[in-house]
């Protein structure tokens, strides 16, 4: 028995004519045309290259933001300190019963207080006051540290920066003000950039720690906001300056703008799940009844093959 003909799946055998078509010539012409357009656009518009922001640049331009971020790393309230997997123990995003983040575990361990504050300070040589402050901090009980953190947190709102010093109006924060002040000075000298990068190796290509620290402050995000790059500004598609960006990410960034994704604490994994589902639809179009009939119903094909259908009738 012969199968019924399905217009969205089958094609009748082509019995019509063929004509000469120089596929290599077509390819060569395409190559030359694309090359010409590329060269023209490059000569006229160039490409963006906004310099990277260093910890030095950040702490020099916004010392208070830097000092507050450093304190949040020390007392464990920063984004990185409380991030969860893959950096440390913490909450994980959920997709229904799936906790993919948590299941994969801590694979890039980050201890914010040790890596971003105590470690770099310990690497500073010849500073007796700092060495003593670090000793006091590290030998204190949790209760004492928490009392210092509370005092510092209360005074933080009126923190100021004058004569290269971070000024915090409190006397109840123990060694914390001196530590944060010295760390800010270290950051402003550029030494912290180096300390974070070269701790384990002379040759470096891994910027995980520096970038995590940068992203805990508000300075990086402020610059990004000016460049219209925030997630809430469809920033994923955008490029610095007035250049076109990754416009092909429109469907990815779209979901972040609309509820329920935009209000969900599991937004990232939900958007990802949605995209996987949509990509599967695109991938399996040939097998999905209804979806595979869309081209026939759209009728654009009648225009594309208009000469063929004209010849037929």
């Amino acid at each position: 028995m012969k199968r019924r003909y399905r217009p969205d799946v089958d094609v009748p055998e082509w019995t019509g004519g063929h004509y000469p078509y120089d596929i290599l010539k077509e390819g060569t012409i395409a190559l030359v045309v694309v090359l010409l357009i590329t060269v023209t656009l490059s000569i006229f518009f160039g490409s963006p290259d906004e310099p990277a922001i260093t910890i030095k640049a950040w702490s020099t331009a916004a010392p208070i933001d830097y000092a507050q971020t450093a304190f949040s790393e020390l007392n464990g309230t920063s984004g990185t300190a409380s991030y969860g997997a893959p950096y440390n123990q913490g909450d994980s995003q959920r997709l229904g019963p799936l906790q993919l983040e948590k299941w994969m575990g801590v694979r890039i361990p980050i201890n914010a207080a040790q890596d971003f504050v105590l470690g770099p300070l310990q690497s500073l040589p010849g500073q007796p006051a700092l060495t003593s402050a670090l000793h006091t901090f590290q030998t204190a009980s949790d209760a004492t540290r928490n009392a210092w953190f509370d005092a510092y947190t209360k005074a933080e709102a009126t923190m100021s920066f004058a004569k290269d010093q971070v000024v915090v109006p409190t006397t109840a924060a123990g060694p914390v003000p001196l530590m944060i002040n010295d760390l800010t000075a270290m950051a402003r000298s550029g030494a912290l950039d180096q300390a974070l990068l070269t701790r384990n190796s002379f040759y470096t290509t891994n910027y995980t720690q520096t970038l995590l620290l940068l992203s805990d402050g508000t300075y990086l995000a402020n610059v990004a906001q000016q460049q219209h790059l925030l997630g809430t500004q469809w920033g994923m598609m955008n490029e610095t300056g007035s250049y076109p960006g990754q416009a092909w990410l429109w469907l990815y960034t779209l979901w972040y703008q609309v509820p329920p994704y935009s209000q969900s604490s599991n937004g990232d994994v939900e958007v990802f799940g949605t995209l996987v589902l949509l990509s599967a639809f695109l991938l399996f179009v040939p097998f999905i009844p209804g979806l595979r009939s869309v081209p026939r119903r759209l009728g654009i094909y009648k225009l594309i093959w208009r000469e063929h259908y004209r010849d037929q009738s």
């Binding site: 890039i108 970038l211 599991n266």
Partner: peptide, 25 residues
């Protein structure tokens, strides 16, 4: 450059949420 700094710090949340962040950093 700055663009890659920003894109990477943003993208890490998306990639980490899928569990791939520990392997594709």
């Amino acid at each position: 450059n700055f663009d890659s700094q920003w894109i990477s710090t943003q993208a890490k949340d998306g990639i980490n949420a899928t569990g791939a962040g520990g392997f594709f950093n």
